[in-house]
């Protein structure tokens, strides 16, 4: 049990948010959002880790051997794949915004149009 993964998670979250609010390009902004999201992975894995425990796969170790928490790993695993598709959706929105307005800077997209 150490404080390091939690510190890394908080830092990743904040540095990602900083990137989002200072962003001048939609693609940059979307990548910053995935940095924010990766902080949740570090947090979850940090919670589930146990010193000296095996991976939760009982092929060559008997069931009941101390193993790390499989629940947080399962949460993370699905999220990694889902995040990529959500990123693709956001990038598609960026493509459309560029087609409509010719701009990719979120600061210059001040007008709402039907």
């Amino acid at each position: 049990m150490t404080w390091l993964p939690y510190a890394v998670a908080i830092w990743l979250f904040l540095v990602g948010i900083y990137g989002v609010i200072t962003s001048r390009h939609f693609v940059h902004l979307i990548i910053c959002l995935s940095v924010v999201q990766s902080s949740t992975y570090v947090l979850l894995l940090g919670i589930g880790y146990r010193v000296g425990a095996a991976a939760p796969v009982f092929v060559d170790i008997p069931p009941g051997t101390p193993a790390v928490d499989p629940v947080v790993q399962a949460l993370m695993l699905t999220d990694v794949v889902v995040e990529v598709t959500v990123t693709a959706l956001l990038l598609a929105l960026a493509v459309l915004a560029h087609e409509r307005t010719g701009k990719l800077d979120p600061n210059k997209l001040g007008i709402l149009r039907g």
């Binding site: 919670i47 589930g48 146990r50 939760p56 796969v57 009982f58 092929v59 069931p63 009941g64 051997t65 101390p66 193993a67 790390v68 928490d69 499989p70 629940v71 790993q73 399962a74 695993l77 699905t78």
Partner: peptide
């Protein structure tokens, strides 16, 4: 405080109850 009780419970039951050796897949 990590929820050790639940993690241990999941790790214990997946093989006898479901014949699944990868606990992560069993959870998913």
């Amino acid at each position: 405080r990590p929820n050790d009780w639940y993690a241990d419970f999941v790790n214990r039951v997946t093989v006898p109850e479901r014949q699944i050796t990868d606990a992560v897949t069993a959870v998913n």
